[in-house]
């Protein structure tokens, strides 16, 4: 998920950097009002947790790689969007400057994708769903699960946009790559949604008071909430629907023809699930139907998880404890 230096053009880095700078500045101002003298310990600690949480590997079925938490929505649900945006920013800074994970020049783009769209946007979706479901404690989990999935997809779509701007879209046909990218992240998003939901339901079972209640704790105005949710939702939908437009002359079909693949044949072979097996680019014969089905399937899976966890699926495994926590 982390963009390396050299992938985006300097212009794109500057523009995304400026947007992120403004967003981080705004978050800082809001946070100071929100948490006052607790801002530094709470946000700093949250950033440490997200950083450590990202190092816990989750096995993925059928894939040789493992996934991990990204944490934007989880952080936002815990402490609100401003602290979350800053926590993700801090994590990205430490990863770049201390571990060389993710670029320095593309830090702005990473913050924009994960901290701003991921945390603010994710939180906006979370809030709207919670309002819609009612403000009971258990609505927090389905809302967060759906928001987590959307935020990952939106971040991936935004990366595709930034990458497209960097290469100059007239020169290359990138739709096939983008489709792969988005499909891959639809899967990553399912993982993120699952982890976010599981962690939250654990926290809720122990300390429900720690979960911020939208509206009360962090005053996002309705307008900006809908704008952010709109941006994220729009990006995610664009990501799913992009392949549908591919009967355009310079679209996916053309790519398919150029690579000598026959779209219809692949469609007949029933490649609906092929998308999930594809971390490697082996031919870009994405049939539009398969792609969209996969997108819709992803959505359904996420909603299923959301409902399952929200229904209060209880932990039936013994809770791990090591040592005594120091608190009283």
């Amino acid at each position: 998920m982390h963009i390396r230096d050299g992938i985006l053009s300097p212009e794109v880095c500057v523009v995304t950097g400026l947007i992120s700078l403004a967003a981080v500045g705004y978050s800082l101002r809001k946070l100071r009002l929100d948490l006052e003298d607790r801002a530094v310990p709470l946000t700093g600690m949250l950033a440490s947790v997200v950083f450590a949480g990202q190092m816990v590997n989750f096995p993925l079925i059928g894939l040789p790689v493992s996934g991990h938490l990204l944490g934007g929505v989880l952080a936002a649900v815990m402490l609100g969007p401003w602290a979350a945006c800053l926590a993700i920013t801090l994590v990205l800074v430490v990863q770049a400057v201390l571990f060389n994970d993710g670029g320095l020049l593309s830090l702005g783009a990473n913050i924009l994708n994960m901290g701003v769209v991921g945390a603010w946007g994710g939180y906006a979706i979370y809030t709207i769903i919670r309002k819609w479901l009612g403000n009971g404690t258990m609505t927090a989990i389905p809302a967060a699960v759906i928001a987590a999935w959307f935020s990952v997809l939106a971040a991936a779509a935004l990366f595709c946009f930034e990458f497209g701007c960097s290469t100059g879209s007239q020169e290359f046909h990138l739709r096939g790559i983008f489709t792969l990218m988005v499909l891959y992240h639809a899967l990553i998003g399912v993982g993120e949604a699952l982890i976010t939901g599981s962690v939250l339901s654990f926290v809720l079972s122990r300390r429900p008071d720690l979960i911020s209640i939208p509206g009360a704790a962090s005053p996002i105005t309705n307008v900006s909430q809908f704008v952010m949710a709109g941006v994220v939702g729009g990006l995610a939908i664009a990501a799913i629907l992009a392949p549908l437009k591919s009967d355009h002359p310079d679209g996916l079909d053309q790519v398919v023809q150029q690579t000598g693949m026959e779209a219809r044949q692949i469609e007949r072979d029933g490649l609906v699930f092929q998308g999930y097996e594809l971390p490697l680019p082996r031919g870009f014969g994405w049939s539009t139907l398969a792609t969209s089905l996969a997108g819709i399937l992803g959505t359904l899976v996420v909603f299923g998880i959301a409902m399952g966890l929200g229904k209060g699926a209880r932990w039936n495994l013994p809770v791990i404890e090591s040592g005594e926590p120091h608190g009283r």
Partner: peptide, 25 residues
């Protein structure tokens, strides 16, 4: 089981860290 215990691990880490943040404050 791996998923569940991993998620519990992060959850526990999060809880303890936030409690620690209160004490540090």
């Amino acid at each position: 089981r791996d998923w569940v215990t991993n998620a519990q691990m992060i959850g526990l880490l999060l809880l303890r860290a936030m409690e620690r943040a209160e004490r540090t404050h």
